[in-house]
Design a protein around this nucleic acid. Structure first.
Lengths: 211, 211
DNA sequence: CCCACTTTCACCCATATGGGTGAGGGGTCA
DNA sequence: TGACCCCTCACCCATATGGGTGAAAGTGGG
């Protein structure tokens, strides 16, 4: 049985081209041709496709909002973004909101058909440029390396409680040590982290993923 | 001119198959066939490839460590993982450490050649299953829900500076408002966030990704 | 026009923090 | 044994924070 596909694109020319393309291949069957993404969730519910092709730049309701809406109701339905944009923001917004694929409109018809087929079978597909962006995102999303501030075990413990929001007094009670001892530890921590206040210490600790 | 390719795989049979495959296509030229990843960085430096093909499971030194090493020295060099594994850990470890592509060994020879060509031209390539994993990772890696604490614009501004580690006085100067005004904003922020100290506010802001 | 909210500022008072200095006991390593 | 770090505690002093109360000016909607 063929793969059922729904289209969302405001450009009539593109809609007709896609319709022609998919109808010329027996592997596919177009179940919906939508010229806007208004009530996208409802339209998808009626058309019941195996794969959705979604343009991004549509009037009134853009494709990214539509993806969020449709994905919320049909989490397993593969949605392919098909657009001319390759800016990071739109790409990642789409992916975060539930898109399973992202093809540029410059892709060849064969690639498009192949990608839709892949997605119908549970895979994902992207244009090489997009894939590269995704890969790069992965890499420098990771911390370069947590600088080693050479905190002692006790200092880590104190810092941890500090980050939890405890006051000096509360930390002292929790660790069964004196108030002044806590202060001493914290002074040492500040010295090692090169900060001068609790907030700086907490911010640095959380942002750099210390502990 | 052809795309220069270096291979890393401990399995002799696979090495020979790949060599045969790439040599049968004039678009490619094999510049190195390595049976282990020891001194990978040095080998890559000598062979000077445009693309590296890296097996993951190799004795002594695995492909993931090799990727990290090579990527550190040649950040722009595309590295394609070529392996039978499709477990999340190995996939994401590879990507984090600098892999640009990830193909399963079940991929067709045509796909492999096409992918290497794509990578040589600055793109990235993955098997559909891997791409799907990456996409899914994107989605539920995003915050489930950012509770809306209904902070006013000014309050967000103040909170932002607080997280930066500024004191009340510094915030007042930065925003060109009075010290007492800053205090008023912060009191309101505490009330809305249900906290009572700067550290709690900072910790909550960063951890929950507010702002 | 009134109400709700935001932004701004002021004053009182208690407590928390930050910095400096000093010091005793324990452990390690050369 | 002496140098060095860790953990502990103490005291002095200045400044920063937290909570409460009150209030004026502006904005925007019903």
């Amino acid at each position: 049985m063929p793969i059922n596909v729904s289209l969302f694109d405001d450009n009539r020319h593109i809609r007709e081209s896609l319709l022609l393309l998919f109808n010329s291949d027996t592997r596919f069957h177009i179940v919906g041709v939508n010229e806007d993404a208004i009530y996208a969730e409802e339209k998808v519910r009626e058309q019941n496709p195996d794969v959705v092709l979604m343009d991004i730049d549509m009037p009134v309701k853009n494709g990214i909002d539509a993806v969020r809406e449709v994905h919320a109701s049909f989490p397993k339905l593969p949605i392919m973004m098909l657009t001319v944009f390759e800016d990071t923001e739109r790409v990642f917004d789409s992916l975060k909101n539930g898109a399973t694929g992202y093809l540029l409109k410059s892709s060849s018809p064969e690639k498009l058909l192949e990608s839709v087929e892949i997605m119908a079978h549970g895979g994902a597909a992207m244009s090489p440029v997009i894939a590269k962006m995704v890969m790069t995102h992965f890499q420098y999303h990771e911390k370069p390396e947590t600088t080693d501030y050479r905190l002692s075990p006790r200092e880590r413990e104190v810092l941890h409680l500090l980050v939890e929001g405890l006051s000096y007094k509360m930390i002292a009670d929790r660790l069964n040590i004196g108030f002044e001892t806590v202060r001493t530890h914290i002074k040492k921590i500040y010295e090692k982290l090169h900060v001068h206040t609790m907030t700086e210490a907490v911010a640095k600790t959380i942002k750099e993923g210390l502990l």
